[in-house]
Computed example of a mutant assay.
Amino acid sequence: MSEVFITVAPTGAESGYDDNPGIPLQPDEIVAQAVASERAGASLVHIHGRDRSGASSLDRGILTEIMHGVREHTDLVVQLSTGGGVRDSFEDRMAVVGLQPESCSLTCGSVNFGDEIFRNPYPFVERLYLAMLENDVLPEFECFDLGHVATLHRLLDRHGPPRQGVVHCNLVMGVPGGMPGTPEALLAARAQLPAGASWSATGIGRSTLPVMLTTLALGGHLRVGMEDVLRFSRDEPVRDNAQLVDRAVALARIAQRPVLDSTATRALLGLSR
């Protein structure tokens, strides 16, 4: 079967030490866990910023510090989140693109996010895509529901594909308010993706393993990390992000899908360091 690359998402915008003491909340902790995750087999890192208090932040200085630390100590493909937290402004989210990472996430529509709303109206999504095209930043199209896949097609029809020549999508599954983290939902979403698209899938919480195993069977790429899951099993909290990457590598080997390093991942995504 085809080769697979592994994305690690070390920390998101919501969880803290009370949820799991192993989650990295300081810039240096995020960099250290990125280094360990690369050693375990990850080739791309999805970065959220955290300030000195551990709170979610889109501060350009903090994101630059994390990005430079990752680049200094690893060869990981660097992807910055333009999602931030659900309360971040559109302008602060837009500004992330100007930091010139290799890739940025681009969420393709609004979604109920637990008790809140992650707002991504189409005019903002379109502006964000155009900014990525202008800055030669590869978008990773984040699709939380089938309607988001339709928005992806709308963007491509109106503005064409990314300049790297690769359409890469991440199907985010199991968020309360989004599509469920089930094999059936994954099959339906994958069937609607653009022909020839590169894709990965993310299972949130207890959907992590069903989504990962289905993705491996269908030929997709993997995303794991403490942004998405804080328990390794029913009785065991996640120790750190490298533990999740280790499991993904082991399952990929069982599925006989060789794991790509960062150089091969860049080639697949049309990127150059």
Rank of each mutant, 00 (worst) to 15 (best):
F5S: 04
I6N: 06
A13F: 12
E14Q: 15
E14I: 15
S15G: 14
G16W: 08
G22I: 13
D28I: 15
D28M: 14
V35N: 06
S37W: 03
R50I: 04
R52F: 13
G54F: 12
G54T: 12
G54I: 13
S56G: 11
R60V: 12
I66K: 04
I66R: 00
M67L: 08
G69A: 12
R71N: 07
L80R: 10
S81D: 05
T82Q: 05
G83K: 01
G85L: 07
G85T: 06
V86C: 14
S89G: 10
F90N: 08
M94S: 07
G98Q: 14
P101L: 06
C108L: 08
S110T: 11
V111P: 05
F113R: 08
G114M: 15
I117V: 15
R119W: 14
P121L: 12
P123W: 03
F124R: 03
F124I: 14
E126N: 07
E126L: 14
L128Y: 10
D136S: 11
V137F: 01
F141K: 06
E142W: 03
F144T: 01
F144D: 00
T151E: 06
L152K: 10
R163N: 10
V166T: 09
C169Y: 02
C169F: 04
N170S: 08
V175A: 02
P183C: 09
A185L: 02
A189F: 07
Q192F: 08
L193H: 06
S200V: 03
G203K: 10
G205M: 11
V211H: 00
M212I: 05
G220M: 04
L222G: 02
R223V: 04
V224G: 00
V224T: 02
G225Q: 04
M226L: 04
M226Y: 09
Q243C: 15
Q243A: 12
L244N: 07
V245G: 04
A248R: 04
L251Y: 10
A252W: 00
A252Y: 02
R253Y: 10
I254S: 13
R257I: 03
L260T: 01
R266I: 09
L268P: 00
L269I: 07
